[in-house]
Design a protein around this nucleic acid. Structure first.
Lengths: 184, 184
DNA sequence: ACCTGAACACCGTTCAAGT
DNA sequence: ACCTGAACACCGTTCAAGT
């Protein structure tokens, strides 16, 4: 008959996320997270399935911090908000961000965010199939760019150049979403 | 006055790459690679600066396996070859591939491949600045898609659907590269 | 010059035990 | 129910030593 829990899943994810932000993803270990919570590593297993589940939790945190911009008044504006939001998350959490391209969204909260993006695209007038496809393609392109930037792949270029890169990418996507190319 | 070397950088990268392909990126450790070469872990440090340098070596291997398609007869065809080549590498080496979005190309051989892509775009008629920008954007989008696919982010969809996604992405990029959008 | 051996502070996870 | 303690097979890297 239980004693009160000293930690829970949320506290564990908080600690892990902070650790990743400050010392990098490699610093996120079961031992290190436990240390931060004044608990032994094994205490974490009561609340989380292991290291993999911990990383899935970080993906969830990234996505819920992002949140999907609500249904587009107009499609261009929605796209700008959505892409800008993703890029902002990448800049705040460069160490954690690559996980988004490495791990599918598996936790319920994580899947919810993706579903909200699809819903917004449907509200903007796409069929369900087209909305799902657009979500996959836009997220791939934007995540690819944001992850590249966060990882320092464009490090050698001036910030202004990279900002203009991003603007150009948005123009491409706008063209693709509003252009003569979403039949079927 | 040296004894003959039993291993070298190439042999180490061979072993690491094979290990990653067969058992995943997490299986690539200095200990495990050394074990595969019948050598102690410390022997690797003579030929490589450490774990980070080992991973940079894997990035180099991915890029040199890809090789840039030679200068485009026509731009569309070049784009198809280039994107298809990247996707093929991702499918052959799903475990290693994400490194491309996580680590900038730092070794000389790795940078050479990227420079060849830029050169091909210049041969196709872009200015140097435009070619560099196009390389950054196309590689971000294609790497983002290929990494997503390799990581299983589209796992729930039929192969035919994902193939059509890729075709659609290519149409977007073609539009962007040949459309009314590469002034300045 | 190239590799080994012993060592250190870590890591993920298990198992049985305490309260 | 929740957490600890001891333990295991790992990990990256250092240092001094062998040939």
């Amino acid at each position: 008959m239980g004693r009160p829990a000293r930690i829970d899943r949320a506290a564990i994810l908080d600690a892990a996320f902070e650790l990743a932000d400050r010392e990098g993803l490699d610093a996120v270990s079961m031992h290190a997270v436990a240390r931060r919570l004044n608990v032994t590593p094994m205490a974490l297993y009561r609340h989380l399935d292991g290291k993999e589940a911990l990383l899935d939790g970080l993906v969830e945190r990234l996505l819920t911090e992002f949140r999907a911009p609500r249904a587009g008044q107009d499609r261009e504006q929605w796209l700008t908000a959505m892409a800008g939001g993703i890029r902002a998350v990448a800049r705040r959490h460069p160490a954690v961000f690559p996980l988004l391209l490495t791990r599918p969204a598996v936790t319920p909260a994580a899947r919810g965010v993706r579903d909200a993006v699809v819903a917004a695209l449907q509200d903007a007038g796409l069929t369900e199939a087209a909305a799902r496809r657009a979500e996959r393609l836009v997220s791939s392109a934007v995540l690819g760019f944001a992850a590249s930037e966060a990882a320092g792949r464009f490090r050698q270029h001036e910030q202004a150049v990279v900002d203009e890169d991003f603007a150009e990418l948005l123009r491409w996507l706008r063209l693709a979403l509003t252009g003569p190319h979403h039949q079927e």
